[in-house]
Amino acid sequence: MLLLTDTLAGMASSDPSPALTAGADRTPFEEEALTHAEQLYRIALRLTGSQQSAEDLVQDTYLRAFRAWQSYRPGTNLAAWLATIMRNANLDELRRQSRRPVQEPLDDDGDYYLYNRLAESTPQPQDEVLARLSGTAILAALAEVPENFREVVVLVDVGDFSYAEAAGILDIPIGTVMSRLYRGRRLLKRALADRAGEWEAA
């Protein structure tokens, strides 16, 4: 896990890098970090649900990252390091607002559920439905997926992080990443199926 404290402890005991020398220039690090800002923003938008909150979260993330920049190990995955900081910043914000949401949704349908539901009304769902599936419907359905499932889906399916990277970012075992990811995608399909009527109307 890439917890900041662990990383700092690791750095103190071994692997002294040039970045640790006093007065090292932070600018190259800042420039490289900023190349990930848009990717982080898109993840933040799905975590927070609003543009303003997403922008605030990314700003908070970069302020934290720049303060802690010497604990970043050059050559390791900077995007994952930043995403870890962002995830912790988001947790802090949620705690501050005391709105850590419900963890376990009740129902879980199989992976074919959405297709089967759509096939009831459309002969060729794979073409017809995806053509009708607006981005707005997908984003709204994604927002309905409980946060601890949604964050894994967003990291892997939007952020392109691997299972292992997501496990590091979220500080959970890979097996938990897989179960939440699979469940989260099924919940997304469930939410899309529940919105099927809306697409028909649109």
Binding site: Y41, E55, Q59, L63, Y115, G135, I138, V158
Partner: peptide, 30 residues
């Protein structure tokens, strides 16, 4: 269908525009 759905999810999240001046505001704030 599942494969196409994933592509649709990914593209609708990735194509969403970043607000005007986002990176500039971020630099300034930092």
């Amino acid at each position: 269908f599942e494969r196409s759905l994933r592509t649709a999810v990914k593209s609708c999240c990735s194509e969403e525009p970043v607000p005007d001046g986002f990176v500039e505001r971020l630099r300034r704030r930092c």
